[in-house]
Nucleic acid binder design. Structure first.
Lengths: 359, 359
DNA sequence: ATGAAAGCGCTAACAA
DNA sequence: TTGTTAGCGCTTTCAT
């Protein structure tokens, strides 16, 4: 009742504010504030009246006002330093984001996405703005690079950061990654192939400026050597389908040193590689076995279904978000999250016994 | 100079504020504000001093403060009402987002993403919070539904909205869509198949609560009839790979009324359907021709490459962002953006002459 | 051309 | 237990 004379400037029916709620509930604004923030010192009846008033007015605290006041922004940032089309082609990001969102949404946090080009300067600018403009409480990063400068930048900017993946050297950053045997997946894949009789196994790696790229290649080499096999061909290229196609052409060109199995650095490349092989007249898995990495949905869509090394990207995303929350709560000790299930081989249809025409 | 006694509360080296810049430049805060907002009434020398000071302090206006003051949030919202994993499997969204970001980024706008579950209530809640908390200046929607309630909600919330796609009935909403012949793609596809001798063409549609789903099916039927063919089988299902597989099984089950070509409502289903057919022993395109819709990157990755109906999703995203800007600038007349190139057939390898074993 | 001051909606000291 | 009030960093009249 007793709506004050004219309801604030000009337009009526403007968004309600904390003052409106306070007025309707017949209490002070600080009482309302205490209620919505679960602060002590409010009697149950008062509390209820405030809640009712807020409900009736469909009011919830203005995120910007809260943020300005110094509290949380309730938003986490993510900067993708890749060309937009590359990103669209590789669902890796989407899956990760799904996981992150799964944690953010219930906490009523939003994900502020910035897709900037490949140039590092654009990336840096994006982080700077995120920090300077105080748009987010923290950022989640992926794909740490060798000699990564982002963490240093973020520390300067005092922007809490969580990395999905393995940090470079001892970059003092909170990171979430697969637990225990991070190399388990690749080892299993190599064992799987070796057990199937493959002796010529190739690995198509991605650009070696990434920490995980190098790590995976090394694990591959080590695993092969342990089985007494020599790493047959390592083709380093880019993370694109085209690169995968070129790599396969090259691998299959010379009959005498042709591999009977190929491991790819990710599923997109593996699928592209598989198609390329078939276009060249090789049957999969009869003439060539193919293994991917990531276990993206696409692997189950294609024919034959892609054998791949699965890492739980969704869970990785969730953990990253959880870690971020811990970090923001000022408990960096507990921020290092429990490890995620290690990557493991998911045998499907694209691998089979060695001994086709390519043998 | 003459930094005031202690530089504000506690910690020094806190983020600089407009006051710091003003002090360093030896002017008032309002002068600084005018400069950064390109307001008139500032002499060139003063202007320069302010710019220099801001530069030196690495200051840029706090987004939250600006937003609170009533100006722009510089963020656009997007709510995905789908299960996170579905979303990850269908890159449709990612591609669209690429396009949107391509426009937002240069304007220094961010994209605030919310992935909520399938339940409509969660979706509504997300929009409400976006509006009530004033987190974004507007939202971009996709996939208008028949009887869509979102636009009414958004109007209530006074949240500017732009739809990518065809609105339901005359939902008074700004929308971006393909120009001219929106049915061009499907007609071309039907012509293409008919010219190849196909007489039994099936269409695997998605859930018919979507506006575009129904539209596409109708165009398909009309196009077939114009060629004197009867729409052979319409299987309505969900937008998932599994559904596509089931549909294909069903279509290929009865030899006497088996189609020789199938059009799918999207590329993901088409790829899944193609695999299913091949698993059942049908060669593509020898025994069965397949056509997708969207022209997602996956279509070029698989073997055989997918013939599909391409719509420029990236451009659609860009246009949506552009339209949003116009809307926010208060020029709704100019908000309706120029139409995007109409969808058109992209013939690749998954279609061929009718007359395989299935004929 | 420039500056002082009043808020935007909220939280947290501090009073009562 | 409750209310008063001073800002958070910025924009914008309104004076000067």
């Amino acid at each position: 009742m007793a709506a004050q004379q004219g309801p604030r400037r000009g337009k009526r029916s403007d968004k309600p504010t904390i003052a409106d709620v306070a007025a309707l509930a017949g209490v002070s604004v600080s009482a309302v504030s205490k209620v919505v923030n679960n602060r002590p010192g409010i009697s149950p009846p008062t509390r209820q009246r405030v809640l009712d008033a807020a409900e009736k007015l469909r009011w919830s605290p203005s995120a910007t006002a809260v943020a300005l006041r110094g509290a949380r922004t309730r938003a986490i940032g993510m900067v993708a330093g890749r060309a937009a089309d590359v990103l669209a082609a590789d669902p890796h990001f989407s899956v990760l984001i799904s996981g992150i969102e799964a944690e953010l949404a219930p906490a009523d946090y939003g994900l502020l996405l910035h897709i900037v080009g490949e140039e590092p300067s654009a990336e840096e600018r994006a982080y700077r703005r995120l920090a300077e403009e105080r748009r987010v409480d923290g950022v989640i990063l992926t794909e740490s690079r060798i000699g990564d400068t982002r963490f240093e930048l973020l520390r300067q900017l005092r922007l809490p950061a969580v990395l999905v993946g393995t940090p470079w050297r001892d970059d003092p950053v909170v990171s979430v990654r697969a637990g225990g045997e991070q190399d388990a997946g690749i080892r299993e894949a190599v064992d799987h192939l070796a057990d199937l009789g493959h002796r010529h196994i190739a690995y198509v790696s991605g650009p070696e400026d990434r920490v995980h790229t190098v790590f995976r290649r090394r694990v591959f080499e080590a695993a092969l050597e342990e089985r007494g096999l020599r790493p047959t061909r390592i083709v380093v290229s880019e993370f694109t389908a085209d690169a995968a196609v070129r790599a396969v052409r090259q691998l299959l060109a010379e009959p005498q040193r042709r591999p009977t199995a190929v491991l790819f650095a990710n599923d997109t490349m593996a699928v592209a590689g598989m198609s390329a092989a078939r276009r060249l007249g090789f049957e999969v898995p009869r003439d060539l076995s193919i293994v991917g990495y990531d276990d993206l949905p696409i692997g189950e869509l294609v024919y034959p279904r892609l054998t791949t090394i699965g890492q739980d990207l969704v869970q990785l995303g969730r953990s990253a978000a959880t870690a971020m929350f811990a970090l923001l709560d000022g408990s960096p000790e507990s921020a290092q999250p429990p490890p995620v299930r290690p990557p493991s081989l998911i045998p499907r249809e694209s691998t089979g016994p060695a001994g086709g025409v390519g043998g």
